[in-house]
Every structure is written in C-alpha cells, then in structure tokens.
Design a protein around this nucleic acid. Structure first.
Length: 502
RNA sequence: GUCUUGUUAGCUCAGCUGGUAGAGCACGUCACUUUUAAUGAUGUGGCCGAUGGUUCGAAUCCAUCACAGGACACCA
C-alpha cells in the first residue's frame, strides 16, 4: 500500500481534520496577484522608509512552505514559488479568532502550498518580508519533504523522482531554464537566418543518417517493423532535393547503445541543411551561433568547465591529419601509412581491429591522442573519406572530405560537411558500408536506395550540420553528466516495478 | 559488457575485529510575538536493498542477484 508510511498517515489525518473544520485542503480559488520575485522587486524601497513598512500596499502571494519557525503566538515561514523565496510573518492576532492555534499550528507544515495576503515590511534582521493578514491552504502535501538543510543528494532519487529534486534544489530548475532558453535561442537564430523548421519522421523504415544501432518497433496496421530514427539527416536532404533551401529540425534521436555520462538512449540534436553553401560557410555560421548564444545567455566567453577554462573567443581550425602531429604528437611519417600507424598504436599499448583501412586508423589516432586535448573550440577539418560516408569529397584531394567536427572541452559538439550530392558516388559509398556490415561491423550504414533515387533527381550543392543540444547545454551549465541536463534521464526499472508490471 | 564503491528511520549520515540499532533534521507533545538550518524540554519512529550460506549468534563475514555512482570498454 503506497500510503502506509506513518508520516503520510499522520498528514492524511491533518488533511481530514482540515476538511472537518471546513477548510478544503485542496482549494482551487487562488487569488494570487504577484510572483515572489516581483513582490521583492516592487517593494525593495520599503527598506529606505522610516517605519520600514507600508500598510497601504497589499499583495497576495503563493508558494510551497520550505521553512517553518513557530514561536508561540507568531511565526516566520519561508515560501517558495518558481521565481524565488519569500519570508512571511504570521501572528495570531492578525488572523481570525482561533485560526492560528487550531488550524495553522496544528495542521500546516513544511511542503504544503499556501496563499497569503498582507503588506510589505522589513524585519529587524533586515529581510523584506510579508506581514500576513489572510491565510489559505491551497494544497496539502501528504508526503514529507526531504531534510531541509542537506536536501536530496542521492542521485538515484534525484533522477527517478525529478520533481523532488526540483522542489529541493532550486539551482536544478535554473539548469533546465537555461536548457529551455538554449533551444529557444537556437530556433530563433536559424529562423532569423531564413531557415524553415520542419518535422520529419521519427519512425523510419531504414535507420539511416548515422552509424548506430536502432530501437525497433512494429506497425501493426502495415505489419512492418519500424526503427526509431537515429538521425533525421536523409529526410532533411530529401527536402533540399525538393527545393527547400534552408531547413532545420530540433528533436530527439534514439540510439540503442550504452549509457554513460555523455550518452542517453534518447537525445536532442539540431540538424540544419543549407543549399548553395559549403562547410566553410558552416564554420562561419557556427561561430556566429555561439556568439549569439553567449550574448543572449549573458555568459562570459571565458567559460569555466570543471577544472578547465574554455575560451570562446579562440576558435581554432586544424585539418585532421595535421592535428595528429601538431596536437597529438604523432610523427608525420606515421600518420600517412597504415602499417606504421598500427605499429605506433601497438607501441602505445593499443590494439586495433584487423582489417581497418587508413582512414579508420587515422580516426583511431585522432580519438586516442587528439580529441581530449582540444579544449578551446576547434574545428577539425578534412576527414578521411572512409569514415565519412555521407560527405562530399574534396575536389583536389578525393581521399578527404569537406567535413569538420567541432570539439570543445575535449568533446565532440558538432559534425558538419558539404553534402555528397553525386548519386553514383553515394550508391557506391552505401555499397562500401554494406560490405563493412557483411564483415561484421553491425553499425555500418544501411543501404537507402530511396535516398539515392532522391539524389538522382539532383540536390543542389548543400552544407549540413548536426549539433548535440544535450552536450552543448552541459558545456554552458558546467554539468558533467548528461543526466543532469535531461529532466527525466533513462533509468533501469527497479525490481519491484517489473515484478508488479508483469 | 568489465572493474570498483555504495545501498541502515521520510531525508542526511554514524555503527571498529560478529553479541538483536544510533545521531541530526523531520514528525508528536509542551514552552516561546522579530526568527534565519530559530531555540529549549520530551517522545514516537527501523524486515539494516533481496536471497542463500558460515556461525550458538550476522547490519557487520562469504556467495549470488537487483539498483545506483565512478572508471574503463562500446558508441568514428
């Protein structure tokens, strides 16, 4: 039985006592006329007055009781709404006869949501407060809140019961407010640039656009399996074929893989595609985008991240092969030779899967020796074609692609390239991926012949980019686990749940 | 998936080399009309994550399992 806990029983009894006394413990007649933040702002002048009070002003505020200090015939209570915390002063003689002793002191407690009216005054300790002359219980909380000083620190409870985390930790609310603003600003930035926001399918017949294992579901009416999308890329490019010249989509992707500090099975990205542009233009718009975010979020461009400090005025641009040497310290002659790379990696105690090609090995070197050293924002450009199945080849150097990934604080934030629009090349790249899949790479890209057919009608030269919103928010809020920027991160069910459900 | 550390009251945590459980907050009762984690007095509260084992005796030792945190692997 869910309410068998004795503290909950006790509070249910209080709710019943209130009902018996004619007070609805779940009243629905809120008269609130200001937020706590506004109240504190509007009345900040009271401190300057001689009496430190103004009985001619009157406000009604609402909030959850966070602290309750009862001192005989008067009490101080701290209530919190979304905007902030306010101290209210309640004295017996300012409320109806008997209310203070028999209702307030007996049946109101921390966690309850109340509404009070009164006038502003400043206490002897100098705190702007509300002198209460009317008191209404709006919602009785029958479950006791966690301890008032330490709050709730158990990460498991914080993630599983995010509502408790939000009640107890106001800075958590702040993180999610920033997240919301980042998404809103991102939308506005691209709209202002003339991009059109579109919605493409979340359920795909072929899971394409990235290398990842998909979630599978079944469509009964058609009796076909569908894959939750791993990326919207191939649909957005179909729209470019259709004649839209600048589109973007902000939404969830799903990948059926491991979970850790930077991976959640569902995550949010923005992908945008821009016709008649190249990856060089994307570098410029990306810098502009970050500038825009920092301006509107009012963040310092020298941003702390854990022990690191990231300088957002210092965007770097380094070709991947060059970075292996200049950042990773790998000798130049090693970076261009398959056998030497394998020998070099082995020497460093790293074993590689047999049959890797030069591009994959260069990627391996990058992951191993470069990625974590890229602290200030760095565009790594010119990726090997073998590890870029959807990117356009460089006209002069067909073994590399017109692509970049943006790294910040040692982590990949964005992936972008001039799109491959040669349908014959695209077909053969898919075939190469098929071959890789045959030889055991179960995350190789699926053949999508409908997409190849779309390209065959002609896609204007286009540049496209994806940005991981969760990781971006982590960076901007100095959070180090993706779970701290997801309101409801994925969790394993606890045993009891599964037993009851089955 | 591997390694590692946790899981004790509603919450935050003690509990040493095995001898039937402790604190603070919260809650109950009493006192208190300017407090700031209010204070003082007093009391209630526990299947010590689950299941087995060792033992006269297990919160404590061992094994298995579950969940979580961290690290690694995987995820270009």
């Amino acid at each position: 039985m869910i309410f068998e806990n004795k503290y909950i029983q006790q509070r249910i009894e209080k709710a019943n006592a209130l009902k018996d006394a004619g007070y609805n413990p779940y009243a629905n007649n809120s008269q609130r006329n200001t937020s706590i933040e506004k109240y504190l702002n509007v009345n900040s002048d009271i401190a300057e007055t001689e009496t430190k009070r103004d009985e001619n002003r009157h406000y009604i505020v609402s909030g959850r009781i966070k602290f309750l200090r009862i001192m005989g015939k008067a009490s101080f209570v701290k209530i919190e709404d979304e905007s902030g915390m306010l101290q209210i002063y309640i004295s017996r003689d300012n409320l109806p006869e008997g209310f203070y002793n028999t209702i307030f002191k007996k049946n109101i407690e921390v966690g309850d949501i109340i509404e009070v009216g009164g006038f502003p005054f400043v206490t002897g300790q100098g705190e702007l407060s509300l002198h209460v002359d009317s008191f209404t219980l709006l919602t009785k909380a029958i479950a006791p809140l966690p301890e008032k000083f330490h709050g709730i620190t158990d990460k498991e409870i914080r993630y599983r019961k995010r509502y408790l985390d939000l009640i107890m930790n106001s800075e958590v609310r702040k993180t999610f407010q920033i997240r919301s603003r980042v998404i809103s600003l991102t939308r506005r930035f691209f709209e202002d640039k003339g991009f059109l926001e579109v919605e493409t399918p979340m359920m795909h017949p072929i899971a394409g656009g990235a290398n990842a294992k998909p979630f599978v579901t079944h469509h009964n009416a058609l009796d076909v399996d569908r894959f939750l999308r791993i990326a919207p890329e191939l649909y957005l490019k179909r729209l470019i074929v259709g004649g839209f010249e600048a589109v973007f989509e902000i939404n969830r992707n799903f990948r059926n893989e491991g979970m850790d500090a930077t991976h959640n099975p569902e995550f949010t990205s923005i992908e945008f595609y821009w016709a008649y542009k190249t990856y060089k233009d994307l570098i410029e718009i990306t810098k502009e985008y970050f500038q825009y975010l920092f301006d509107h979020l009012d963040l310092p461009t020298l941003l702390p991240y854990g022990d690191l400090e990231v300088n957002f005025d210092n965007f770097q641009e380094i070709p991947l092969i060059e970075s292996l040497t200049s950042v990773g310290g790998v000798p130049v002659d090693v970076t261009k030779d398959k056998e030497k790379i394998i020998a070099y990696l082995n020497e460093k105690g790293i074993t590689v899967k047999p049959g890797m090609n030069l591009g994959q090995l260069q990627g391996e070197l990058f992951d191993e020796f470069v990625e974590e050293k890229l602290i200030d924002p760095t565009f790594i450009t010119d990726y090997p074609v073998e590890i870029s199945p959807l990117a356009r080849r460089n006209d002069e150097h067909p073994e590399i692609t017109e692509r970049f990934e943006l790294f910040i604080a040692g982590r990949e934030i964005a992936n972008a390239f001039s799109e491959l629009n040669d349908p014959v090349d695209q077909l053969s790249r898919f075939e190469g991926q098929m071959a890789a899949k045959e030889s055991g790479d179960d995350e190789a890209h699926e053949m999508d012949s409908d997409f190849v057919e779309a390209l065959s009608y002609g896609m204007a030269p286009t540049a496209g980019q994806g940005i991981g919103i969760d990781r971006l928010v982590m960076l901007l809020t100095n959070e180090h686990s993706i779970r701290d920027v997801l309101l409801f991160p994925a969790m394993k069910p606890v045993t009891q749940e599964t037993a009851e459900d089955s």
